[in-house]
């Protein structure tokens, strides 16, 4: 039997598996990422509690917030600004945690699936799409809950929603990267909590001496925060900053997916030394 014989799809098997594989992978990835009860509890309980707590703590003092794209400094209500940064913070924690947990728990299972013949690009595509869908849904939820505390203009609300969606994507991708790199629960949770707290709270000038300083540009939530504040207070759409946030998400996702690809690859059909040739499962 030759290598090409071995690689052929045996009789009785489906000859057009790509769509079926993608459907199965997307369905089950969504199921895995939405079965995290703690994340669901945080979503329902933590988001509104966090908004209320942060608004009460911030009060209504006037704060200066610099828009780096235009050089303008806006004078804004501290309570409303803090609501935006509280939403960004809550999303970074919840989405980061949910994706990290789901990816880490299923890594060995995904490796077995690929070993059984599941196409890696299909699995990667399905995971990426499921993280995108979940990030968008959770961001929409957080933006809707925000309306119970503050009613920005419709355009302002959409700007906040876009900022929320991008930060959720960024930390979803960060969770993906940690999920394939970090072995223990605690290490991953610690990195997500510390990273999210440091990143999002530094953007808020309320009690932060670093606020409005250029160093903030090097943090993942800089772009989404600038876009959300510019849209809701300055009636300006800073698309470049939204794109900057997306670049962070794409960077984390690319790194995470490359590691995922390496960790789930098999040595099928490679008739090299020490390797097996032939379909396996």
């Amino acid at each position: 039997m030759t290598v090409s014989d071995l690689a052929a799809v045996p009789s009785g098997r489906s000859s057009a598996p790509a769509v079926r594989q993608f459907g199965a992978a997307l369905r089950f990835a969504l199921r895995n990422q939405t079965r995290n009860r703690l994340a669901a509890l945080l979503l329902v309980g933590f988001v509104p509690t966090w908004y209320g707590l942060m608004q009460a703590m911030a009060g209504h003092q006037q704060l200066s917030f610099k828009l780096f794209a235009t050089g303008r400094t806006l004078t804004v209500d501290g309570g409303e600004l803090t609501l935006i940064s509280a939403g960004l913070n809550a999303l970074s924690l919840i989405v980061g945690f949910a994706v990290f947990d789901a990816i880490r728990r299923t890594l060995a299972f995904d490796r077995r699936l690929v070993f059984a013949g599941f196409r890696q690009p299909t699995l990667i595509g399905a995971k990426t799409l499921s993280i995108t869908v979940i990030s968008a849904a959770v961001a929409l939820y957080a933006a809707l809950v925000l309306l119970g505390f503050w009613r920005p203009s419709p355009a302002g609300w959409f700007a906040i929603l876009a900022g929320y969606a991008v930060i959720a994507l960024t930390y979803g991708a960060f969770g993906l990267l940690l999920g394939v790199l970090v072995k223990g629960d605690l290490e991953g949770f610690f990195l997500i909590i510390m990273g999210g707290l440091m990143d999002t709270f530094l953007q808020n000038p309320l009690g932060n001496p670093l606020a409005n300083k250029p160093v903030l540009q090097w943090f993942p939530s800089f772009g989404p925060m600038q876009f959300a504040v510019a849209g809701s207070f300055g009636h300006t759409a800073l698309w470049g900053h939204l794109a900057l946030g997306l670049a962070w998400a794409a960077g984390f996702a690319a790194c995470g997916l490359i590691v995922f690809q390496i960790k789930t690859r098999t040595r099928r059909h490679e008739p090299h030394r020490g390797n097996v040739s032939g379909p396996v499962g």
Binding site: G274, S277, G278, V280
Partner: peptide
């Protein structure tokens, strides 16, 4: 080092 030759499908 070493080689493995398989003439068929594998279940593990």
């Amino acid at each position: 080092a070493g080689t493995v030759r398989l003439s068929g499908t594998l279940g593990y």
